[in-house]
């Protein structure tokens, strides 16, 4: 496949940045999108041009590192995949492909296609954990009875890899699907009950501090989420938040 790429280049946080056009040739339709970018970078290095910086790690869809807005969609035109799982057969030979970083004031571009997602880390630190001593004295998992449905729902949301596609695709740059996943994951399990109220209050407060937008229920996030996390969990978070706000003592 021969392709024309319009790639966002930006030297650093302060640089204005802009789209650069590169040609890539001889790309296998069975290669992944990141492998295609590797080929492009090899050519750039041989030409003496600085290669394009992009995030990647596991390349099997579980780390949440890759984060590209490809041809107007988070993680590209395929569904339920991350960018590393996106195959070039999803594109036409001769096509022009736009490759951009996530766009959000809360996830500023660090360089080229890499964005700073530490806002997610700070939200997670504000409440996305359970205070359980795991140093060798954890009890048997079967000692705590958990309804199958609750276990399934907790597992569904625990699949969130924190890639940020929900923020990138939301017209409001809202992080509610991410926060809803992290809140719900513990709200369904007995281990999460002790900090249940404070968790949702703290995580929503931190989300607001980070400057993410508000959810307007377009549902775009659940469509683009590589782990298919449903917006039913945003409603769950809203219930958790309302309940905690009304019943908390401060």
């Amino acid at each position: 496949m021969d392709l024309t790429l319009k790639v966002w280049r930006q030297k650093n946080r302060e640089d204005k940045g802009g789209l650069e056009t590169y040609k890539v040739t001889g790309i296998s339709e069975n290669s992944s999108f990141l492998e295609m970018l590797d080929v492009m970078n090899e050519h750039l290095i041989m030409e003496g041009t600085e290669p394009v910086a992009f995030d990647h790690d596991c390349r099997e869809g579980i780390c949440g590192s890759c984060s590209l807005y490809i041809n107007g969609e988070a993680h590209g035109p395929d569904r339920k995949v991350t960018t590393c799982q996106l195959h070039m057969r999803m594109f036409e030979d001769g096509e022009t492909i736009y490759v951009e970083p996530w766009r959000s004031a809360s996830m500023p571009v660090v360089k080229d296609l890499i964005v700073d997602r530490s806002s997610f880390e700070r939200i997670q630190q504000s409440g996305g954990f359970v205070s359980v001593n795991t140093s060798g004295n954890t009890q048997d998992a079967n000692a705590l009875p958990i309804p199958k449905m609750n276990a399934d729902k907790a597992f569904d949301v625990a699949a969130c890899i924190g890639c940020g596609a929900c923020v990138a695709t939301c017209k409001n740059s809202s992080a509610m699907l991410f926060v809803a996943a992290k809140v719900s994951q513990f709200a369904y399990l007995p281990q999460g009950q002790l900090e249940r109220k404070q968790r949702v209050l703290n995580m929503v407060e931190q989300m607001d501090k980070e400057g993410f937008g508000n959810c307007t229920n377009t549902g775009a996030c659940e469509v683009e989420c590589p782990k298919s996390i449903s917006i039913e969990y945003i409603a769950k978070m809203n219930r958790e938040y309302l309940s905690a706000s009304i019943t908390s003592e401060n």
Partner: peptide, 27 residues
């Protein structure tokens, strides 16, 4: 809320296809 939402994305995408994942009314 709209003004807050607009401030949350000061730089727009060069190419965006919102109709692929949401309907016009919701947006």
């Amino acid at each position: 809320l709209e003004s807050k939402n607009r401030a949350a994305r000061p730089i727009k995408y060069a190419l965006d296809k919102p109709s692929e994942n949401s309907n016009w009314m919701s947006r």
